[in-house]
Amino acid sequence: MNFIKSFILILSVITIFSCDKESITPEMEEEMEEECNLTDVTYNGTIKSILSGCQGSSCHGSGTGREMTNFTEAKAYAQNGRILGALNRDNNFSPMPKNGSKLSQCKIDQVSAWIDADYPEG
């Protein structure tokens, strides 16, 4: 009987520790390491760096016809719902970043907070 209890205990410990960090993405680690700041989110203070990969890319860079290289252009995409739809990978939206991993929930929440605060430029 003690053998069975010991076996079950060992099996339980192995199962618990087999769930290692391999299933945690870099974005999840980043989010766990720092608290997500959703107060005083501005374009210049927060959003510009989140969208920086889009601004210099062939997707939304200068001359693409889909520019998002400054506050006015980013605000226009946000106002029509395209930024959040794409970041959340909602149906009928091309996922952003294109061919990349989904942004951390913190960054998506910061974009949402910026929109909810009526797009402060800062």
Score class of each variant (00 low, 15 high):
L84G: 04
Q55R: 07
C36R: 06
Q55W: 02
E27R: 05
L9H: 06
Y77L: 03
I83C: 03
Y77I: 05
I24Q: 07
T39C: 01
I47E: 00
D90E: 15
N92H: 10
C36M: 04
S52C: 11
N91E: 15
V41K: 02
S49G: 11
K21Y: 04
S104K: 06
N2H: 04
I115M: 10
T64H: 08
P95S: 01
G63N: 10
E35R: 12
S112F: 02
S23G: 09
E67D: 03
I14M: 13
I83K: 01
G85E: 02
F93V: 05
F71A: 09
I10N: 08
N2G: 15
I24S: 04
A86R: 00
T69Y: 02
M28S: 05
T42E: 07
D90T: 12
E30G: 09
G122K: 05
I8D: 09
K5L: 10
C106D: 10
C19R: 14
D118N: 15
S58E: 12
I115L: 01
M1N: 10
K75D: 05
N44P: 09
Y43T: 04
C106N: 05
K48C: 08
H60G: 02
V111K: 00
L87V: 02
D118W: 05
L103T: 03
M32Q: 13
S23P: 02
S12T: 15
F17N: 04
V41P: 00
T72L: 11
F17G: 12
S94E: 14
E34H: 13
E30F: 07
E67F: 08
E73G: 09
T69D: 13
D90G: 08
C59I: 14
F17Q: 11
N37R: 10
K98F: 10
T42H: 05
I14P: 00
E27Y: 06
I24Y: 07
D20E: 06
T25E: 06
K48A: 12
E73M: 13
S62K: 14
I16K: 00
I115C: 08
E30A: 15
Y119L: 03
N37H: 11
G56K: 07
C59S: 14
G100Y: 09
C54A: 11
C106R: 00
G45E: 08
D118E: 12
P95W: 03
F3T: 10
I24V: 15
S12L: 15
S112G: 06
S104Q: 08
G61T: 05
L84F: 08
K75R: 12
G63V: 11
S112V: 04
N92A: 14
G65M: 06
V111L: 05
E121R: 11
P26H: 10
D116G: 08
K107N: 14
R89V: 02
E29C: 11
G56A: 06
D109S: 14
E22H: 09
S104D: 04
I108M: 00
F71M: 09
N99H: 12
V111A: 07
L103V: 06
S58A: 14
A74C: 12
V111S: 01
K98M: 13
N2I: 04
A74G: 09
L11W: 10
Y119C: 13
G61Y: 09
S104G: 15
S104M: 01
R89E: 13
A113W: 04
T25Q: 07
Y43Q: 08
A117Q: 12
D40S: 14
